[in-house]
């Protein structure tokens, strides 16, 4: 039986993990490869690396990181963050990334999704969509770290991305991100029903029950979180044991 996936997300800048990672027994919490290996051992199903480097060396440092991670890691991983061209995607895939996620570049030029899917196959093209809710317009897609409203409806954009050949949607609720009040069940459920590709829910995870809810009520295929894992608030194994008790298929 296909299992629900648990995905820790690591923010990296200039090849180093950012956001205070507090992990006992990790000699260098800034080393993304060591952190990734630890998550893999604990039972993470996949990893996402979100690169926030903004220098001219961005591509070279990211390719080097991908190689280091792929050399060490025996579970799949996705790389995202400011990736905008076919040649960027090619360099990352050829060096060992399993999937590449695109966000602003796809919103600026949606045909990029078609081009990437045709060239590399849908299975490795993830479209990351950042949604924020307001009473007037409902759930809309934002860029620039949630500050710029594109005016696009979240469900419609995800459906378009899927039709253009995306293999997976990584849906982040900017309204929930950082709150620890749980995932956005309404928009996650709406997107999951609107597309026939897998949907990864992100933003708002604060408890084990939040994952149960996003799988049972919003039909997400995977749940992604960062700080609750990095700060050791929830262990991957105990989370999966909780999910299994709730009747959710997980890999243990």
């Amino acid at each position: 039986m296909l299992t629900k996936r648990i995905i820790p997300c690591l923010d990296v800048k200039d090849g180093r993990t950012v956001k205070g990672v507090r992990f006992e027994g990790l000699r260098d919490a800034g080393d993304p490869v060591a952190l990734a290996a630890r998550y893999a051992r604990e039972g993470a199903d996949e990893l996402v690396f979100l690169d926030i480097t903004a220098t001219n060396q961005k591509r070279a440092t990211l390719v080097a990181l991908v190689r280091d991670v792929a050399r060490e890691l025996d579970i799949p991983f996705t790389v995202g963050g400011g990736i905008g061209t076919v040649s960027d995607v090619e360099a990352l895939l050829m060096n060992g990334a399993d999937k590449v996620s695109i966000n602003s570049a796809a919103l600026a030029r949606p045909e990029l999704i078609d081009e990437l899917a045709a060239r590399f196959g849908s299975q490795c093209i993830v479209v990351a969509a950042d949604a924020r809710y307001n009473d007037a317009d409902g759930w809309q897609i934002y860029t620039r770290a949630g500050t710029h409203n594109t005016g696009r409806d979240a469900v419609q954009w995800c459906r378009e991305a899927a039709e253009r050949g995306a293999g997976e949607i990584l849906l982040t609720s900017m309204s929930n991100d950082g709150t620890k009040d749980g995932f956005a069940l309404d928009i996650t459920g709406a997107v999951s029903r609107a597309v026939t590709i897998p949907v990864v829910a992100s933003g708002g995870a604060g408890s084990k029950q939040d994952f149960t809810n996003v799988f049972q009520q919003a039909h997400a295929d995977a749940g992604l979180a960062a700080s609750i894992f990095h700060f050791g608030e929830i262990g991957i194994r105990e989370l999966k044991e909780h999910l299994r008790q709730d009747g959710i298929a997980v890999r243990l």
Partner: peptide, 15 residues
């Protein structure tokens, strides 16, 4: 065949 319950690609860990 893609359905809302069985997404395509079949992506993830299966036994």
């Amino acid at each position: 065949p893609a359905t809302p319950e069985y997404k395509v690609p079949h992506m993830g860990w299966n036994n």
